[in-house]
Design a protein around this nucleic acid. Sequence first.
RNA 1: GCCUUGGUGGUGGAAUGGUAGACACGAGGGACUUAAAAUCCCUUGGCCCGAAAAGGCCGUGCGGGUUCGAUUCCCGCCCGAGGCACCA
Length: 919
Amino acid sequence: MDYNFLEIEKKWQAWWAANKTYKAVTDPSKPKYYVLDMFPYPSGAGLHVGHPLGYIASDIFSRYKRLKGFNVLHPMGYDAFGLPAEQYAIQTGQHPEKTTADNVARYRSQLDRIGFSYDWDREVRTCDPAYYKWTQWAFLKMFGSWYDNAMQKARPIEDLEAAFAQGGSAAVDAACGEVKPFSAEEWKAFSPREKADVLMQYRIAYQGESTVNWCPALGTVLANDEVKDGYSERGGFPVFQKKMTQWQLRVSAYAARLLEGLDRIDWTDSLKEMQRNWIGRSQGAEMVFKVKCDGASYDMTIFTTRADTVFGVTFMVLAPESEWVAKLTSASQKADVDAYLEQVLKKNERERMAAKAVTGVFSGSYAVNPLTGEEVPVWISEYVLAGYGTGAIMAVPAHDSRDYAFAKKFNLPIIPLIEGADVSEESFDAKEGIMMNSGFLNGLSVKEAIPAAIDYVEAHGIGHRKVNFRIRDAIFSRQRYWGEPFPVCYKDGIATPLPMEALPLTLPEIDQYKPTEDGQPPLARAKDWNYEGYPLEVSTMPGFAGSSAYYLRYMDPHNDKALVSKEADEYWRNVDLYIGGTEHATGHLIYSRFWNKFLYDLGYVVEDEPFRKLINQGMIQGRSNFVYMIPGTNKFVSAGLKDRYETIPVHVDVNIVYNDRLDMEAFRAWRPDYKDAEFILEDGEYVCGWAVEKMSKSMYNVVNPDQICDTYGADTLRLYEMFLGPLEQAKPWDTKGIDGVNRFLKKFWRMFWDREKWLVVDEEPTRAELKALHKLIGKEQEDIETFSYNTTISAFMIALGELQGCSKRAILEPLVILLSPFAPHIAEELWHQLGHEDSVVYAKYPEYVEEYTADDSVKYPVSFNGKTRFTVDVPASYSPAEVEASVLANDLTAKYVEGMQVAKVIVVPGRIVNVVLKK
RNA sequence: GCCUUGGUGGUGGAAUGGUAGACACGAGGGACUUAAAAUCCCUUGGCCCGAAAAGGCCGUGCGGGUUCGAUUCCCGCCCGAGGCACCA
C-alpha cells in the first residue's frame, strides 16, 4: 500500500466527525486542560497559509495533553461582528448576516481540511442572538454596578444607593466621574432624573462625555487601540478628537488590578511590558495652585511626578480642551486665545502628532507658586493633554524637555535646580543629582527630595500623594449596524435597562446600512425600534464586546439560563494555554481581563485572570518573487544578469515559480500583457529574485493551505508549518522546503509497508532500537512542553534514521502515538492498521525510560588550552579521575604537551576534557 | 527618544558555558532506469597545504571583558523587527 494522503485524510476526518472523537465532557475524575485559540474574524479572503500556524501549535498541544491523560477542552468559533462585513453591506446592500455566514462556511471547510481536534459542538459565533444575549447580559450587569475603591471590587448599584441614603456622597470611595458632593438628605430629595444623573457617574458601564476618536469616514467613534498613528486601524481613515457623549466602560477603575495581575500569569515579558505601558502607572502628587484672573481667584489642581522641582516652576500650561481655559482667559487675551483654540481644535489627530512646532498662547492669568509665593504666567498649549492628570501642569523648563522647548520658544525663564546641570542647551531630565535653588530641599539628592517635597506639601495642605494611570475608560458605543444592540431604552430621556427577560434584544432589519439623513446611526432607520413604547438606544457595541468573554461561553455554550453554569466554570475555570497574535496586546487582552475581573467581583466566575499562559505565534511572512523588466519593452532579464541592463523589478505570482525558476509558459498565460514576453536567460533558465514581505494579494505571494493539502496533504502542511522555525518567531513561508517533511512521512509509512507487503512483526526490540525510541520520547516531551516543535520534528527524522529497517510492533506502536499530535491522519490510519479499533487519541503516551538512553561509553573531546585536538572513548561509568588518567595515558597527549607542562586537567562529566598547559 | 526583541552557511534554522552549523531545503556528484518521476548513496561554512590520506588557519553583527573554554555571561557600539510616543 502506498501512502495515499488524500484518501487517508478524508477518511479519518469523516470518521472523527461521525464518532465525535474530540467531544469534551466535564469529567471531575480527570484533570482538565483548556487550550484556546484566538477565534478568527471570518474575512472574505479566506485563510492563507499563515493563519493556521497558531491553530496547529495549539492542536499539537491539545493532542499531546490528551495522550498524557488530561481532559482537554479545545473549542473554536468566530468573532463575527465587525466592520468589513458592514462596509461590504453598504456597498452591495447584502445583509452582513449573509456574508458572515458565507465566510464562516468557507473558514470551516478550510479548517476542517487541516485536521484540528476541535469540539465543534461548542462552536460560538458572536453575532448569534443566543450568544450575544450574554454579551448584553454582561453589559446590564456593568450598568447595574459601581466600583468600590475601598474594597477594590465591583458591587451592585443598589449598595451605592443605600450608602448615599445613609451618608451622602462622602459615604463611599468610588471610581466615578465629576460629582458635586451631596448629603444624605440632599440625595433623598433629588428628583429621579437627578438621581439617575448622579448614578450614571458611578456605573461601570456609563454614558459620559469625553474626548473621543471620531472617524467621519466610518461614521463612528473608535477606541484608543483601534487608532494607529492617527488613522483608523480598519480602513485607514483619518481620526479627529471630538467631545461626545458615549457609552463607556470604567476600565480605569481596574487599572491597579490589571497591572498587579500581570505578575501572576505566564505571558511573555514583551507582552506584559506592552500592557504595563498601556496601563501606565505613574506615582506622584497632586498639588493646588492659586490662580488669579481679572480679579477672580481659584484653586487649580495639577499632577506632577517631580514634586521636588516646584522651586523651578516658571509658568503653568493648560490643555486647549481644559475647562480651566474659559475661566482663566483674561479679557485682554480673549481674542488671542480664541484664535489659538480655533486653529488647534480643528486639526485632526494625525496633524497634531505630525506638528513638531511648539505652539501656545498666554491666557492672561497668573498662578501663585505655593512654596515660593511667586507669580507665574498661565499659558495654553496643545502639548498638554486634556485626558491625562488634570489637564493642567506646572512647567519646570530646566528639568523637562517639553517645558524647555516651550520656554525657549516664548522666552520664559529657566531656573536650574540641580548642581552642575548645564541647561543652556537642553534640559536635564534625569532623576539624579543634588538639589539647589530649592529652599529646604537644597543639598538633598533628587531621590530624597521627591518624597521630602511631597511630605512638606501634604503637611501644609497644599497637596497629596497620587497615583495616576494612563489607561482610559473604553468607549463602548459605535454608530454602526453590525454589532450587539444595547439593551437600553429611554424613559423621559433617562437611560433605563431592559429587564433580563427581554434578552436577547435582536438586531432589527433595516433598509440600508448607512446613517440616516440627519446623521443618526443606522439603527435609527429601524421601524418600531422601541421597548414598550420607549425608544431604544441606536448605537451598537464595539467588536471587542463579543470577544471579551467567549472563552467562558465555550465551557457551557448551550446554557440559556446563564453565561456559564457554576459546575462548568468550577471545573474548567480558566484557559490554561492561549495562543494568538501579539496584535491584541492592548485591545482584546486588556478588555477580556477587565471583563473577567468584573464577573469575578460579582461572583459569576471563580478565577480572576482568564488566561493563565499565553504564547504569541510569530507572523508568517510572504516570500515574494520578482522578474526584471526592461522598461518600455516586453523583455525580462534573469536575476543573475539584471545588473547588465536597466531593469525594474515586477512582482510575479509565487505559484508559477518553482525553486526561484520561472515557469515561462505559465507567466505568458498569467496576464494578457505578458503573452508575448521574451526572456533573457542564464543557463537556459529564468531565475527570479525574491524578498520577504507581508503575505498579501498585491504582492502575489499568498499561498493557500487548501492547495498545500491537495498536493502534499494536511499532515505535511502541519509538520512543515512547525518545522519552519520557532513558534514565536516571525518567519517567511517558502514552499520549496516542504519536500523534506513530506519525505519524512513517506519514510515513516515505509516502516510499515513495502509496497503491498505489511512489514510489522512481533519481535523483541534490540537495545539500540529501544534507545532510539526513548531518546525520541524524552526529546518530544521536553520540546512540546517548551513549544520547540521544530526540533521535535528533527529528532523524529534522526530517530527514523537510527531505526532504519526496524518494523517491530513494540517500536512502531509508540512511534505512531508520538507522531499523532503532529500528523494525526497518518497516525490514525497506521494505528488502525496495527489492529486498534479506538482512535489513537485515546492511546496512552509511552512512558519514558531514562535507562534505555544511557550511553555505554562516552566520547570526550579533549582540548588543550581550550582548543579541541582529539577525542577519547571511555566507559560511561568512569569517574572524572579515571577519565583524566585515560586521557593522560593516550599517546596523542604527548604530541600536544611537548615543551609544555600540564597545569591542570578539567573533566566535565559527559562533556569534555580540557588540559591546561603552561610553559 | 523610550521599552521589548533579534543578528549563526546559498536558504529555513540547531546548540543546559563544553567538538558551532544538528535537522531540512537548495546545489554538485553517483546508483537504479530506454528516459523521466520516485527512491537510495556520497560531497557541501571560508581559506591554506597536499597526488591522496592527513593537517593547519579563520569563522556565530562590531569592539572590549570574565573564563582553562563564550553563539551562550558582562560592558560599550552598529543594524533589523515589533510596541509606545508630547502621559508632566
